[in-house]
Computed example of a mutant assay.
Amino acid sequence: MTHTSGEVVETMTVEESPETVAQVLQHALVGEDLPDSFTLLGQEWSLHRGVFPSTLSAATEVLASMVPYPKGGSLLEVGCGTGVISVTAALEGCASVTALDINEKAVANTAANIERHGVGDRVRVLHSDMYEALEPTDRFDAIFWNVPWTYVEDGFPLSTDLHSAVFDPGYQGQSRYIAGAHAHLTDGGRLLIGTADLGDRARLDSIAEKAGMRVDMLDRVRRIEEVRVMEYHLLELHAK
């Protein structure tokens, strides 16, 4: 159960096998049928091989439409992938956007889409493991991550660059995301997570609890996908 606007809302967690996800990753790496561009949110976007395609699920489209972009302010996106959300943030009125990704191919892909949409004066992209590439003084009005929600145990091998886009062993990445965010938020800044009903919400709540925070549901959207109905969640973390 979770709370939103004073109401109790039931959420569900659905399990997805790592083997199923790995098949999708293999296609993204070597699938000869993948194009070098795609259409999303009424815009054309470049797609580089070795970057998780933003159209394999509705996650990017849905979450890009849900994020409360701080218009006139600054946004940090962790795990930017193709750069759709970071570029959209600039197009929606953010004055400054920083995009981070651990996958160098994703950094190049985001850079291509920054150029494609003419937002280089407002968006920068950095190769970074979580917050490592940031300066200690960097502060943002909102920090967002469309997290790799598929839970696997510690020690699960991330055998390709794309594995870190969908697998978070032991939710260590999300633990680091929550723990390190405070140092890069402005006063009153918002810490946001995009996830889905495939995520382990109880585990995420436990991580937040240990960090002295609570997780609130801001919004959720159901989409009919190829094999099931997916429910995407936009969460916000608050200090207790």
Rank of each mutant, 00 (worst) to 15 (best):
A202Q: 12
G194K: 10
E135M: 12
L191Q: 11
D33M: 09
L40G: 10
R223L: 07
D168V: 13
L204D: 05
R49I: 11
D205Y: 00
T88W: 01
A112I: 05
V8R: 03
P169H: 11
D205N: 12
H233Q: 14
A239M: 07
A196I: 01
Q23I: 09
A142T: 10
A64Q: 02
H117D: 14
M217V: 15
D168Y: 01
I143D: 10
L63P: 06
V30D: 13
A106H: 02
A95T: 07
G72E: 11
K71Y: 00
V215T: 14
E7G: 00
H127R: 15
G6K: 04
L134D: 14
C94E: 04
D219C: 05
F140A: 06
T82R: 01
H117P: 02
V107Y: 07
V107N: 03
D33G: 07
K210S: 14
L185P: 13
A108G: 04
V152I: 03
H117R: 12
L234T: 09
I102L: 09
L198A: 07
L63M: 14
L237S: 06
T13H: 10
M12F: 11
D168K: 09
D219A: 14
S57F: 08
V21D: 00
T88R: 03
T137N: 13
H48F: 11
T13P: 00
R223Q: 13
P157A: 13
L234Y: 10
T20S: 09
D154L: 08
F156Q: 11
L47Y: 07
V107S: 09
G180W: 04
L56S: 12
Q43E: 13
T13E: 11
T13Y: 00
R222F: 00
L40N: 01
I178L: 15
G72K: 13
V9N: 02
A28R: 01
P68E: 09
K240S: 08
V125Q: 09
Q23V: 08
T137L: 07
K105N: 12
L76D: 13
T2W: 00
L192H: 02
V51C: 06
T195L: 08
A181H: 05
I178S: 12
E44M: 10
